[in-house]
Design a binder for these strands. Structure first.
Lengths: 359, 359
DNA sequence: TTCCAGAATCAAACCGGTTTGGACGGTAGC
DNA sequence: GCTACCGTCCAAACCGGTTTGATTCTGGAA
């Protein structure tokens, strides 16, 4: 409500304008614009002249004017709910955002990061839409019956979802890791090594992928005729500390598990700490298999990986999502796109044959 | 060069426009615009009427049009050089970007993320400027005699630097942690515990802050009459793996150090692993003190922290930098701002008295 | 030579705001 | 009673591109 005094950018410093370039060339702005945009009704000779002059003068069309004229902003949005910021977003945020940014750049887009207060999420999206600030959004952390999907359809906002929202039947574009299969395989792998008592240290099970991971884990056990033991299943934020706490608790039980399936490398590091504090050896006394988001700063890509893991790069997920979204923006007729990535199972030093039970 | 077919956003879905609102109110667009912007020449009664109608109809001014008219984009830029993406950016990126995003939101700005190919960095900034895409930029990872600073001055781009660039004398706004003092204190702390042989596992020393950290470490040793031993100083990417490798190497030396100063929690986790692999106990046989960026997913904030650390929140740094930059954008007369944050020294379980030398 | 289709170009409108430079009506001052 | 001035409000220009609809310039067919 205050009188806001906006200082315009010093215009002397910004580059040449279309009008200047066109008068310099003795052409109309129309022709120059079309020549640069690649329209066919400009003669090859003229186009060459224009392109060269533009390059020579370092002409860059003003994005704001272009955005206004075309109704397109060349931004894709990534909206972070502020209650998520403390949640699992963070460990993967760097690589995920990196992936988005990389692919955006390839297509001439930028990434617009915004914060939404938890209770104003819907309003933030509506505002984003009516402001025309972004051409589409990447949603992450799908919730059960996620209300954002209906909202996006309502306001006509192109979007892609990182993950799938349980309970939503309407079609929408998503990319997900096959978490169920990944955790099924991980659990199965441990059983093949002879483990029968296997714990689960999961991410927060209010989030969809954690539910699927648990389902994969439970299914593998069930198929082997083992009943999943609620006492061996925990979930919570994917921090080192929580991983440590969960493992420590399990190791303190009368009959501790001989192996655990863990939802992130960060947690797994805490798990390792708990194992060592208990005087045990990881990969020998206790086997650990983790989900590995292939984060660049927590690399598990040594010649022989430290952690046996089901690996799926979250950076690649970001790249693919950006590409999917841009495709959807530029080809609205495009039908719904679905991508299910399979995690690879890499064997490291954190797993081994189940210790023989001293009978 | 291809004919690019832009599909405008369906206009039926975007919100009400200024013209519609004004004709609805029986006022001119001018008056409505001014009423909402808080200009004094609108009567209180009219203003109230306008504000209410705007709220009722959910009017949101189109950001693109506003940007074009005012010459301001309400974006601040964060440009990631693609060679940095694999470097130390990542571990802290999530929290740093989170901090930027949070403060931006408070001031009605958004964060624009872009990628610059390493050899096109200058071009990217120029383009950003002439496109008018952002009102200012946050630079990070200052290099010696960083050429970006002169470039920003040349193109008239408001900016703030996360860190300080060695060799630059021209004034510019920056925010930094007092890395020299932090590492001086950390080293001094270890010496007070009786340690005399202290290693350094630093971040990549092509980056300014790593140079300062080393200087603090060396100064503390020198003051105590200890000559810094090059064999006990390593530097490299701040990953778990590199921390592990460096510590392992040190422990393999004929006379291993009894303590190490480490540049990040991520590295420290690798250091811990190496210590345990050697059959030693951290905080007993070997003391470890780390720099702690206070990342939310690698929290070292347990009741008794695992790692003794010099702590400085990188999220807070992001917040403060956003605020500094926006202040600079909105008050160009603003003189240069400098903020030097002091790290706090928190004691955890990873340090203890130096083991007595078996004589 | 005339006419016309097609190629190449341009003037003007448009995107949706902000801002400049009045215009209008009412009150105060002389 | 007339002018001066102030508080309100508005028409039109402007930001810098894109796009529509018209115009000019070709060359070839009639």
């Amino acid at each position: 409500m205050l009188h806001c005094n906006l200082t315009p950018i010093q215009s002397g410093l910004v580059g040449m304008k279309l009008r200047e370039l066109s008068s310099h060339l003795g052409l109309s702005p129309t022709t120059v614009s079309r020549a640069l945009a690649g329209y066919p009704e400009v003669s090859a000779k003229t186009r060459a002249r224009v392109v060269e002059a533009a390059a020579q003068h370092g002409y860059q069309p003003n994005q704001r004017a272009k955005a206004l004229a075309t109704g397109r902003s060349f931004y894709i949005g990534h909206i972070v709910s502020s209650h998520d910021t403390e949640e699992m977003v963070n460990p993967i945020a760097g690589d995920f955002i990196g992936g988005l940014t990389e692919r955006c750049a390839d297509f001439g887009y930028s990434l617009s990061m915004r914060l939404a207060k938890p209770d104003q999420e819907a309003m933030t999206f509506r505002k984003l839409r009516s402001e025309g600030a972004v051409d589409g959004v990447v949603l992450q952390l799908p919730r059960e019956n996620d209300s954002r999907i209906a909202l996006m359809h309502e306001i006509g906002m192109p979007f892609v979802m990182h993950g799938r929202a349980r309970g939503i039947t309407a079609p929408y574009s998503w990319l997900d890791v096959n978490n169920t299969r990944a955790f099924h395989r991980a659990t199965r792998f441990l059983m093949d090594l002879g483990h029968r008592s296997i714990g689960l240290i999961n991410g927060n099970e209010t989030v969809d992928y954690a539910v699927r991971r648990r389902a994969g884990y439970v299914a593998a056990l069930t198929e082997a005729g083992i009943k999943a033991d609620p006492a061996l299943m925990t979930n919570g934020p994917m921090t080192e500390d929580k991983g440590h706490g969960a493992m420590r608790e399990m190791l303190g039980r009368p009959v501790p598990p001989s192996a655990v399936v863990v939802s992130s490398i960060t947690q797994a590091i805490g798990v390792r700490r708990a194992i060592q504090e208990a005087g045990l050896t990881m990969g020998q006394d206790v086997s650990v298999i983790a989900h590995d988001d292939d984060l660049s700063y927590l690399s598990n890509r040594q010649t022989v990986p430290v952690f046996t893991a089901v690996r799926s790069s979250v950076r690649e997920a970001g790249q693919r999502l950006a590409e999917m979204l841009i495709r959807q923006i530029e080809q609205p007729a495009q039908s719904v796109q679905e991508q299910l990535l399979e995690a690879e199972l890499v064997v490291g030093t954190s797993t081994g044959a189940a210790p023989k039970v001293s009978a």
